Simulated assay, not measured.
Amino acid sequence: MTHSIPPLAPNAEATAFLAARRSRPAKTLAAPAPDRAALSAILETALRVPDHGKLEPWRLVVLSGAALDRLAALTERLGRARGLDPEHTAKARAMFDAAPGMVGVISDPLPSGKIPQVEQILSAGALCHNLVCAAQAAGWGANWLSGWMATDTDFLRDGFDIEPPAFLAGLIVLGTETVVPPERPRPDPQAKIAWVDA
């Protein structure tokens, strides 16, 4: 005996949210950031991402206070050691100095004879996007950042105690929105979408 499953009902509110979604520039986010209870609910929602094989090839690190200060100083030290442009280094450091709160999304692909590494990395990217959406749906400003530090071996080791192939898929800045950013140009659907029926 087969059971018919009713189709999903359209969710106009969710559709409108996604159609209007845009990141909030990190420099426009101020304290407070979500507290532990609010952030826990956001993170639980964010973890509902495509994950072929249920490998969970990612993890989250919630950063605040002294942790952000430590990463800011590490960024400056490594930027100088690598001879980076001082302005470039200062901008990278400011990501941590100015963040009301931050979540590091670590992509940590696992050995698998079935699930390609690229699929696992894409799952971590989906987690970054889901986290931004979940935070904004809960009323917080959010921005997905990265920078040269995301794949810098010394930064990953000293800042997050991780080694390749793990890397930072994203640094998600969270805080209170102070400015509603204007809409920015979006891709032309006709230039980006192909309909193939043969």
Rank of each mutant, 00 (worst) to 15 (best):
M1V: 13
M1N: 13
M1L: 14
T2D: 11
S4H: 04
P6R: 00
P6M: 00
L8Y: 10
A9Y: 00
P10L: 00
A12V: 02
A12W: 00
L18N: 03
A19W: 10
A19V: 02
A20K: 11
R21C: 00
R24A: 13
A26N: 11
A26F: 09
L29K: 08
A30G: 09
A31Y: 05
P32N: 05
P34N: 01
P34E: 01
P34A: 02
L43Y: 10
E44F: 11
T45E: 13
L47I: 15
P50H: 04
H52M: 05
H52R: 11
G53S: 07
G53L: 07
L55P: 05
L60Y: 11
L60I: 06
L60Q: 10
V61G: 08
V61W: 08
V62W: 11
L63A: 05
D69A: 02
D69T: 06
L71E: 05
A73F: 01
T75I: 04
E76G: 09
E76W: 11
R77E: 15
R77S: 13
L78T: 02
G83Q: 06
A90V: 02
K91D: 03
A94T: 06
A94E: 15
M95F: 14
G101L: 07
M102E: 01
M102T: 04
G104P: 01
V105F: 00
I106W: 00
I106M: 00
D108T: 04
P109G: 06
L110K: 15
P111N: 06
S112F: 01
S112C: 01
G113P: 03
K114P: 01
K114T: 06
P116S: 01
Q120F: 06
G125F: 05
G125L: 06
C128K: 07
H129C: 10
N130S: 15
L131G: 01
L131T: 03
L131H: 02
C133N: 14
A134C: 10
A135D: 10
A135H: 13
A138H: 13
G139M: 12
G139P: 12
G139N: 09
G139Y: 12
G141Q: 03
A142I: 08
A142E: 03
W144N: 07
G147S: 04
M149D: 04
T151E: 15
T153Y: 04
D154I: 03
D154Q: 11
L156G: 00
D158E: 15
G159K: 03
I162W: 02
I162G: 02
P165V: 04
L168S: 02
L171T: 03
I172Y: 12
L174H: 07
G175M: 06
T176E: 08
T176I: 05
E177C: 00
V180C: 04
V180Q: 11
P182E: 01
R184W: 07
P187H: 05
D188P: 06
D188A: 10
Q190I: 13
K192Y: 14
A194W: 14
V196D: 11
D197V: 14
A198L: 12
